[in-house]
């Protein structure tokens, strides 16, 4: 049932000219079809390796001379030198890139530091310039008056709240308020 898998591995063994593993060997001994398959592929491989192909055209000296004559006059640049130049250029470009990026990063960090310092300074100065009612002398006076007459302040606040509530209710009523001049 799994012969097609074994055959694939057998073909790979023929390609690479390696011996069969123990598992493949066991299967080939048991399965006749796979054994035939393996032997046929080995035979074809052997034939291909041993029989020299009969091709009429052969490379001869005159043909090689023709090739060499047809080459351009300019000598090709030596491979190793070109490769070395190429590599050194890449290394140079990489180092320049790293240097530039380091400089740019340092500048950016410095500007960030400056900005942070400026922010801190402005916050400190704004804290120094407090509103007038927050002046220590004013705050102390307010605190003192509140402590002296706590009920008076409370009553004053309650009166204000009640007045505002009444005004709100009047605004919510559907009819208009009578004008005092008309009533008179």
């Amino acid at each position: 049932m799994l012969c097609w898998i074994y055959r694939w591995f057998l073909a790979c063994c023929v390609d690479t000219r390696t011996g069969l593993g123990p598992r493949l060997d066991r299967h080939v001994r048991v399965c006749r079809a796979c054994r035939t398959y393996h032997q046929t592929h080995l035979r074809i491989s052997d034939l291909l390796e041993t029989q020299v192909p009969q091709v009429s055209i052969e490379g001869d000296r005159s043909f090689q001379d023709t090739i060499l004559v047809s080459l351009p006059v300019r000598d090709a640049a030596p491979v190793s030198a070109l490769r070395f130049r190429h590599r050194s250029l890449v290394a140079l470009a990489a180092s320049v890139f790293i240097l530039v990026s380091v400089i740019l990063t340092a500048r950016h960090m410095a500007s960030l530091e400056n900005a942070k310092r400026l922010e801190q300074t402005s916050a400190l100065t704004s804290m120094a310039v407090l509103p007038r009612q927050w002046a220590p002398s004013q705050l102390l006076a307010t605190y003192g008056s509140l402590m002296q007459a706590p009920l008076e302040t409370e009553v004053k606040n309650l009166t204000t709240d009640a007045r505002q509530a009444a005004r709100f209710l009047v605004q919510c009523t559907p009819f208009a308020r009578a004008d005092s001049r008309e009533r008179d």
Partner: peptide, 19 residues
């Protein structure tokens, strides 16, 4: 990369390439 070395390459591989 010179022509002398290239000649060796041609001598070595021209036959098999032709085939």
């Amino acid at each position: 990369g010179s022509k002398d070395c290239f000649e060796q390459i041609v001598l070595r591989h021209s036959g098999s390439l032709l085939r």
